[in-house]
Design a protein around this nucleic acid. Structure first.
Lengths: 256, 256
DNA sequence: AATTTTCATTTGTCTTACATATTAATGTCT
DNA sequence: AGACATTAATATGTAAGACAAATGAAAATT
């Protein structure tokens, strides 16, 4: 294990890359303990703080976890779907907000992905999935619901649909698409979105899913997409330049 | 800006979370300079190494970049699609390899996602996309091609198809799915996969795309999925327990 | 005016030290 | 002998101070 002193990159970055490679390639297995920080410092011929910076980089990607104490140390972490979700959502959200992705493009991607699991969901949806969706629809119908709660409920419903496909990999991939869209969706919810129409379509969607009618599910999703994108267009026309401040406000509101 | 000394989490993790929140919420804008490490250490009332560990965590997620020198410091990084790709691929790859995701499930997810951009690609594919695909097909037909090169070419072809949808968000989401499958695909390529049949289907796929025949594109992808999954089943039956070592070897071979 | 020099600022790294968490071994008491 | 407290060892977490190196801006020089 060596690093290149001539490289332009930081030592800590090089060390992190080296260890990351060992994990990805399988040289380091799940739950395996890495050498102690002092040993790593020796092996890489750097100081302990430098090694620590490298380990923190890996910890930030959930590749390792650390434990204090006598039998402690850094261990290769089993990357769980839950953690991967979070990173995916964070990354996707920033990607959208920092790259001036149009509402239209994001929307198109979101529904294309969601529709991709519609046939599977129609086949495999459980009573549990349906119950979740109906519960959210009921919540969405209540008049006193805040805008943020309505949005959160919307996400939960669509997540239930995605989970209906009973494919963890799909659910993971979709999480980013659905959640990252939320800030952009809020932009609309706080203005023109008609809850009644949304609830109607959600009901239609759930019914189609219950009937295992894949085609109808797909059509309903298309309808929902069309409605959403039309709303986006009308907003863009009425108020083409929306300030970052407003967007930010709408985005932060949904946090619990 | 404060942290909780009573919290179970590390200071560096708390500080990173705090700054991450400021970036995600929009309090810190792209290219904005963070306070110097010394100033941050003051503000959070911790030492400089602790602040540095926090900053390295953020750097690992591409949320900030650092620059040395008089006007240097840490700056909020504009997250680019390219960087996001890489993280997605790394995360997805580890997720698959660490969670005993069956080939079948991964395959189903991959093709479901890929098919989701087929209609868009059929509509928007450029001559460029088609040229890339045909070039890869030609490469795949050459007898002397190594297995690794064939796999890489396969990925390039499918990426061209995805890019044909002309939706950056879709391309980003799909990157993880396609690339992360590669190690699992190799498991098959190095054994039973018939290049001839694959090339035939790739050709059919490209022709359908050129003809803007969305339905035929979809059907061909289904055919490809069926063939791939059948192969997976036959492998599983013939050689149910495949050693980690073999997988690792197949996986590392594809790197350039 | 152009060029060179100096200098202040900031990150990158090292060294040393101490605090704290955790386990294992040891010792003590019943 | 067994249960419990003590101690020691090992590891990460944090702090403090120092120097190196990069970088850009200001000052000095030609």
């Amino acid at each position: 294990m060596k690093i290149d002193p001539e490289s332009s990159a930081d030592f800590s970055a090089q060390i992190a890359q080296s260890i990351r490679g060992a994990i990805v390639s399988g040289d380091l297995l799940v739950d395996q303990r890495l050498p102690s920080e002092a040993e790593l410092a020796d092996q890489f011929a750097v100081s302990r703080p430098t090694v620590r910076e490298a380990l923190k980089r890996l910890a930030a990607q959930s590749l390792i976890r650390t434990q204090r104490g006598a039998t402690g140390g850094a261990f290769v972490n089993r990357l769980r779907f839950e953690e991967a979700y979070d990173q995916q959502v964070t990354t996707s959200t920033l990607l959208l907000s920092m790259n001036s992705v149009s509402f239209d493009v994001a929307c198109e991607a979101r529904f294309a992905l969601e529709r991709s699991c519609a046939p599977l969901a129609a086949k495999r949806r459980t009573p549990d999935n349906l119950a979740t969706m109906r519960a959210e629809i009921h919540r969405q119908s209540q008049p006193g619901l805040t805008d943020e709660a309505f949005c959160a409920s919307d996400v939960t419903l669509h997540r239930a649909l995605v989970d209906g496909a009973a494919n963890k990999v799909l659910s993971y991939q979709l999480a980013g698409a659905v959640e990252a869209m939320q800030p952009l969706m809020n932009m609309i919810t706080f203005t023109a979105r008609s809850r009644e129409r949304i609830v109607d379509m959600h009901t239609e969607l759930t019914n189609a899913l219950e009937a295992k009618d894949a085609i109808l599910v797909d059509q309903t999703l298309i309808k929902l997409e069309t409605y959403t994108r039309d709303l986006g267009h009308s907003i863009a026309t009425a108020n083409p330049v929306r300030s970052k401040k407003q967007l930010k406000k709408a985005s932060s509101k949904r946090k619990k």
